[in-house]
Design a protein around this nucleic acid. Structure first.
Lengths: 296, 296
DNA sequence: TTTCCTTACGCCTATCGTAAGCATA
DNA sequence: TATGCTTACGATAGGCGTAAGGAAA
C-alpha cells in the first residue's frame, strides 16, 4: 500500500503548522479529511509521524526524517514538469554538432558563443567528422546538426548556408607570389600544387579544378587534412588552394593571397540537419542560425 | 493541476515497455485507463511525453528528461518510508551513498565496516551511479555523499580524496605480457586496446591517453562498464588499461600487470558531497573519512 | 465550557473494466 | 485482416464536507 502526493502535501502542511485546523485551512479543506489523510499515510508507511493528543501536535523523530524527505520529494515533483517543459520548448536540452576540422576555425566558435548567449540552457557536444560521415551520423541520430560542405548531400536532410568565404593561395615565405595582394588564377601554372584529396576532400578538390587549370601544374600531394597541407606549404613543398579560414591557422612562413578572379563566396559552409528530428533544441538552433545571419 | 504517483508509475511502465498493452499488463490493469493516465499526465504538465501513432510508441526528448526525473521521484518515494522506519527503530541518522560500480570493490566495503563500527546508529543505503549522475543526485538530495572520480566536479560540491591506486594492464591468459611482473607504458604499442569511453568514462579515458600512446595501438572498443571491459579481455579481444581494484573482479583468464613507469597513485577516488546539506549524519561520515585515512 | 482532533454518514468525483472505434501495416 | 492506441459508458471505490463524538485545559 502506497501513499499519495496529496498525503505528502497534507503531511507537510501539518508538520509546518503543527495544527490540523490551520493546515487544513492552508490546504483549502476541512480538518476531518486531513486527519484521515495523515492516518492513512502513517498506516501506509507503518510509522507514527505525529505525536498528538487533543491539545498539541508534535513531530516524532521519524516524522522529522520523513519531513526532510517530503521536501525533497516535493522539489522533485515541481522540478520534473518544469524540466520537461523547458526541453519541449527547446530552451533546455542537448545538441550534438558534427563538424569538420576546418569549420571549427571561425564559424563554430561564433555559433557556440551565440548559442551560449541566446540558448544558455542548451548544452553542446562536438564531434569531429567529415561531411559524408555527418550525413550518416544525422540519419542515425548520433548528431543533431552538421557543419559541412553542401556537396553531395542527400535530399532527406535540410541545409542552410551558414557562411561563405574566399579561396586563397597559400604560399611559403620566399615564393614569387609572397607579398602580392592578389593572384589571378591563370597565373597559377608551372607551380607545384598540393591538392586536396579528390576522394576525402572532394568539395575542395572540385573547387580547385573548377578555377585552376591543374593540368598546367605539378601535383605534389593529395591530402585531406588542411593542417597537413598548410604545413607542407610552410616546408616549401609547394603552394595550395585553400579556404581563407585556413589563414587562422597562423602557420609560420605561410602567407595567404586572394585569388582576384574567383568569386568571394565560392567556399560555402552549410548547416545540415534531419528535418524529422524530434529534438526541440535543434529547432531553436536552426532558428538562431537563420535569424542571426552567422555569415556576417 | 498536478499529477499523481499512479501516473508516474504508469509513465515509467510505458516508457520502459514502449508499448501500452505490455505496460498495462505489468501494472495489472487494462490498456484504456493506462492511456487515459498518460493523457492526463501529459495534460497536467503541458508537455507531450510520448510520440505515438497506432503502430509504435517512442519517448520525446521531454519524455526522456521526465523519465529520469520520474526514476528519481520513485527512488525518493521508496526511500522516505524506509528512512522513517529506520529512525523509528532507533537509528539516529541515515546516509545514502552514491557510488560507481568500481568503487564498490575495495573502498566502499572498508568505509561501510568503519561506519558500522564508529557510527552504529547511522543506517546506510547505496545507490549505483556514475560520477556525473552523482553530482546531479547530490544537488537533488537523492544522495548525501558520492564516491567518484575528481574529474569535472563543479565547485558547488566539496570533495576529499579517499583512496588512490595504480593503473594496471589487464591481459588475457596467453598474452605476451602474461606472467610479467611489470610493463612499461612504451611497450604498449601495436596492441589491440579496449578503451574506456571518452564520454561515459572520461576520467579513465583521459588517464589512459595521458600515459599511453594510443595512436600506436588499435582501438577495439570503447566502453564504460569495467566488467564488460575485463570480460572482453578474458575473451581475448584485446588488452585494457584499468584501475588496480578491477583485479578484485577475479575474472578467469585475466591477469593484471602494473605499469612500471606510471605513478602509483594516479587513479584517485574522492568523496564528494553538498556542503549545504542539512543531514547531521553527513558531517559525522565526512569526519570519519578524514580522520581515519581510508586510503591506508 | 471551549478547543480541536477523530469518527460517522451522504454526496460526488475519478478511475476502473468492458465494449466499440479507428488507423496502420 | 490483425494489431494496438483511443473514445464511450456504466459501475464502483475513495475522498470531501457536514455533523456528531470525545478528551484535555
Amino acid at each position: 500500500m502506497k501513499f499519495t502526493l496529496a498525503q505528502i502535501l497534507s503531511f507537510i502542511a501539518v508538520a509546518e503548522n503543527l495544527h490540523f485546523g490551520k493546515a487544513a485551512e492552508e490546504l483549502n479543506m476541512t480538518q476531518p479529511p486531513l486527519s484521515r489523510q495523515i492516518q492513512k499515510l502513517e498506516k501506509s508507511i507503518g510509522v507514527q509521524l505525529f505525536e498528538r493528543n487533543n491539545r498539541n501536535v508534535t513531530l516524532t523523530p521519524a516524522g522529522e526524517s520523513f519531513l526532510a524527505e517530503a521536501y525533497g520529494l516535493l522539489a522533485s515533483v515541481e522540478r520534473a514538469p518544469r524540466r520537461a517543459q523547458k526541453i519541449a520548448e527547446g530552451a533546455w536540452g542537448q545538441i550534438t554538432i558534427g563538424c569538420t576540422a576546418v569549420s571549427s576555425f571561425g564559424v563554430l566558435g561564433d555559433l557556440l558563443s551565440r548559442m551560449a548567449d541566446r540558448l544558455p540552457g542548451v548544452s553542446v557536444e562536438i564531434a569531429e567528422m567529415v561531411t559524408a560521415e555527418e550525413v550518416k551520423a544525422l540519419s542515425e541520430g548520433l548528431i543533431d546538426i552538421g557543419l559541412g560542405r553542401p556537396d553531395r548531400v542527400p535530399s532527406i536532410v535540410e541545409t542552410t548556408q551558414i557562411h561563405s568565404e574566399r579561396l586563397v593561395v597559400a604560399v611559403p615565405a620566399h615564393h614569387e607570389f609572397a607579398g602580392r595582394t592578389s593572384v589571378a588564377s591563370s597565373e597559377i601554372a608551372n607551380q607545384t600544387l598540393i591538392m586536396h584529396s579528390p576522394t576525402k576532400a572532394r568539395y575542395f578538390y572540385d573547387l580547385t579544378v573548377r578555377y585552376i587549370d591543374v593540368g598546367a601544374n605539378e601535383i605534389a600531394h593529395s591530402l585531406s587534412q588542411i593542417l597537413t597541407i598548410v604545413n607542407l606549404v610552410a616546408a616549401g613543398r609547394g603552394i595550395a588552394i585553400v579556404s581563407e579560414s585556413a589563414s587562422s591557422l597562423r602557420v609560420d612562413g605561410v602567407s595567404y593571397i586572394p585569388l582576384s578572379d574567383v568569386p568571394d563566396d565560392v567556399v560555402e559552409l552549410h548547416a545540415i540537419w534531419n528535418p524529422e528530428s524530434r529534438n526541440p533544441a535543434l529547432r531553436q538552433v536552426i532558428d538562431l542560425i537563420r535569424n542571426e545571419n552567422l555569415s556576417a
